[in-house]
Design a protein around this nucleic acid. Structure first.
Lengths: 222, 222
DNA sequence: ATAGATTTGTACGTATGTATA
DNA sequence: TTATACATACGTACAAATCTA
């Protein structure tokens, strides 16, 4: 007996849930576009059953929105939505960092510091946009993880799905990757001292994100 | 042509989603108990398809939890979960009330005041537990609605589902219905003045809820 | 407005994997 | 452990609703 094949493959409905989610956040569908389960099932070479179940989950995420009659359309992010979502994100990330400050072990804080160092290094070496998105994302994820509140993680993840569209904008072209790293480092300075000032700095950081996003959303519209 | 029958009935999968959700939060299943789609389908006299889709939604809500192998069990609320969830709830309700203070119209505030008056009246007349739960819930819902952030409403609703179990405990037996009304009235005093002190009072109110719940959860365990 | 073509909602059948004796 | 029963994942079929010509 060998050690391979240790876990069974995920069921189709979960695989397609992830797959379609990626397609949506990566902009492979036009926002507002209608989505067709029959067509998707054919495209993936499976029956409609697992596709339907995946679509139910995507609707819960808010990535699919019920059409007037029946069926779904792709979520379309309005400027008001961005603002609303950032208000929520700020509230939850504030909680996360507050909990993290009191609960994270010294070792966990060290992991965060190492991540920031690595990010600085990779920026210097001209890493790709997608890689920077990943590293930036990871900073927030670590804080979340070290807040040791599983439910908070779940909630924030579900908010973050909707702003992933935005996350991409934040890095496209010149982006503000260097600025973001700088802000993350500032936040961490206070985390290291376990000072609540980290919360304020995180809030400012997220506010900068929001302002930047709104600017880009407006220019895109022209 | 008449005005009746204006909306078509919901599809089964949505009807059963609501139905099963109610059954779970009302304690008709034992937490941790395994749930069987074949059995449910038979009990409701439908095929497994709509039941399956309903169950996916319930899993997203967190009311059903994936079993090790396959299938679902009913979510079981641990004391740690209660604390985690209340932390999130407090963060989101704080945001809600902060937004409400700046955005709600005078008329909207009046609606809240009327709700509190009505609640006081019904308590005096010895209303039922279920009715008091409803009125209490409605206070929080109005604040949420008048915060004018649709996404926040969605998020908080999804948190609240998990603590609805608790909500019931809050009123069973003697409960603290009168105390809750009192705290709501205090919160509202500051809302009326559009003072941020309302936020603090809401936080205290939720903390009292939490402490009370934990006490009841512990005594129940004996 | 009607007829035909899509598309969704639901029933049902089958295969595979899991529990149970 | 093996064999049986059972539950779930997925496919297929059909009916009802919706769209389109």
């Amino acid at each position: 007996m060998n050690n391979f094949d240790l876990h069974k493959p995920l069921p189709y409905y979960l695989q397609f849930y992830e797959k379609i989610k990626q397609m949506i956040v990566n902009g492979e569908y036009e926002p507002g576009q209608r989505i067709n389960e029959t067509q998707l099932a054919k495209a993936f070479g499976v029956s409609r059953s697992p596709i339907r179940e995946a679509m139910r989950l995507l609707e819960k995420d808010g990535l699919l929105v019920a059409d007037q009659k029946t069926g779904f359309i792709i979520y379309s992010l309005s400027p008001e939505d961005v603002e609303e979502i950032y208000q929520i994100r700020t509230a939850l990330e504030s909680l996360a960092i507050e909990l993290c400050i009191t609960r994270a072990s010294d070792e966990e804080l060290l992991f965060i510091e190492q991540l920031l160092d690595r990010t600085a290094e990779e920026i210097k070496q001209g890493a790709e946009d997608s890689r920077l998105i990943e590293l930036n994302e990871h900073f927030h994820q670590l804080i979340l993880e070290y807040s040791h509140n599983k439910h908070l993680k779940k909630q924030l993840d579900s908010v973050n799905v909707l702003i992933y569209f935005c996350r991409v904008l934040n890095f496209k072209g010149k982006g503000r990757a260097a600025e973001i790293l700088d802000e993350h480092q500032q936040v961490f300075t206070f985390m290291k001292k376990r000072s609540l000032k980290a919360v304020e700095h995180m809030q400012q950081h997220l506010h900068h994100d929001l302002v930047y996003l709104q600017k880009r959303l407006n220019t895109k519209r022209d």
